[in-house]
Simulated scan of single mutants.
Amino acid sequence: MAAAVAVLALLSACGKKEPAPEPERAVRTLVVAGDSAGLTHEYAAELRARTESRLSFRVGGKLLERRAGLGDVVKPGQLLARLDGQDLLLAQEAAKAAMNAARVNRDQSGADYKRFIDLHQQGFISSAELERRDAAFKAAQAQLDQAKAQASAQGNQSDYAQLKADAAGVITAVYAEPGMVVGAGTQVLQLAHDGPRDVVFSVPEHLIASLRGAAARPGALKVKLWGSDQPAQAIQLREVAAAADPTTRTFLVKADAGKIDARLGQTATVSLELPKQDKVIKLPLSAVLEQQGKTSVWVLDGASMTLKLQAIQVGGAEGNEVVVAGGLTPGQEVVTAGVHVLTPGQKVKRYVPPAASAAASR
C-alpha cells in the first residue's frame, strides 16, 4: 500500500510543469534630451461676415410668403418676406377717416371763430366769449395734428408688413416659414452683409494671455482653409470676447480675414506660433498614452530592463511631436512604440534592427 502511494505521488509530481517564462518583448526606445521648440496651437475656425443682421418684422402677423431662401444673394431694398396686412390696412383707413373728421371739425371751429371776431368788433359778444371760441379753434387744430400723426404712424405700420433688405449680402439662416404667426421682433432671416470677413474661433481661457502676446508679432497668427491647396496666410487679431462662454468656458476670437478668397461659412484652421523655447523635451506622438485620465509614458530602467509608467505634462505640439512641459528629465529612456500593450514591471529588451544585428554579428 505504501509503495502504491509513493508511485502515485511520483506520477503527480512528474505531471506538474512550471509555466514558461514570458518572452522578453523588444521595444523601441529614445533617450530624451533638451531641445528647442516653437509651440504651435491650432484652432478650428469659420469664415463669417463682419456684420450679420437678424431680420424681423416690426409688427406681428401671419407670414404669407418668403421670397428669399438660404444662400440667396439679395440687394438693398429687395422684398424678402410679407405678412398678411389686411388688419393693418383697415386700421390705416380708420386713422385716415379720423383725420378727415378732425379736419372738418377744425374748419368749422375756424369759421365760427371768424364770425365771433366780427360780432366782438360790433360789441355783440364779450371778450371772454371770444377767448372761448379761440380756445375751441386751437383745440380742434391740435386734434387734427394728433389725427395726422396717428394716420402717418398707421401708414408706417402697413409698410412694416413687408420685410426688405437694408443692405446687400447673403441669406445665411432662415427662422420662419409661410403660414407661421410671428410676433414683432421675431427673427425671420439672417443676412450676412457684403464687405469685410472675419475668421472666428474659440480659445480656452488659460491661453488668452499667450494669444494676445503672440498675436502682436507679425505673422504669428495664420489661417489655412480646409480642403484648399493654398498655403497658410497671415491674419491680424481684431477682437477678443470680454467674457467666456458660460457653457464651453472659451473666449470667442475674431481675426481680420483680409483678402482671403473664401466662401461664407467655410471652415479653416488657425495656427498660433508661440516664441521658441530652449531646453524642452520632445517625444513622438506614439510614445504618449492616456491612462486613468493622465498623460503618461513608459520609462525604461536600464539596470533591471523593466518598465515604469510615468505621468507627464504636455505643453503643446510641434508637427508630429509632443512638447513635454514636465515629468521627464534629460537622460531618461522612453519607449516610443507599442506603448498600449505594455505593463508595469515588464521585462523587455531594446529593439535592434535586423540590418544592425547582422552587421554586429560579422
Results as ranks from 00 to 15, higher is better:
1 M>D: 01
10 L>C: 12
13 A>H: 11
20 A>S: 13
29 T>K: 06
35 D>L: 00
42 E>Q: 03
42 E>W: 05
55 L>S: 00
56 S>G: 14
57 F>Y: 04
66 R>H: 06
67 R>K: 13
67 R>G: 10
76 P>D: 13
80 L>E: 13
81 A>P: 13
84 D>G: 04
92 Q>Y: 10
104 V>I: 14
128 A>S: 09
129 E>D: 12
138 K>F: 14
143 Q>K: 06
146 Q>A: 10
150 Q>W: 00
155 G>T: 07
157 Q>L: 01
161 A>T: 15
162 Q>K: 06
166 D>P: 04
179 G>D: 07
180 M>C: 00
182 V>R: 14
192 A>P: 10
200 V>A: 07
201 F>T: 07
211 L>T: 04
215 A>E: 02
218 P>M: 01
222 K>H: 03
222 K>W: 02
226 W>N: 12
236 Q>D: 15
236 Q>P: 14
237 L>Y: 11
239 E>F: 04
241 A>P: 10
265 G>Q: 04
265 G>E: 05
271 S>N: 09
275 P>G: 07
288 V>Y: 12
289 L>F: 15
299 V>P: 03
305 M>W: 03
307 L>W: 10
337 A>V: 11
338 G>S: 01
342 L>P: 10
353 P>G: 05
358 A>Y: 03
359 A>R: 03
361 S>T: 06
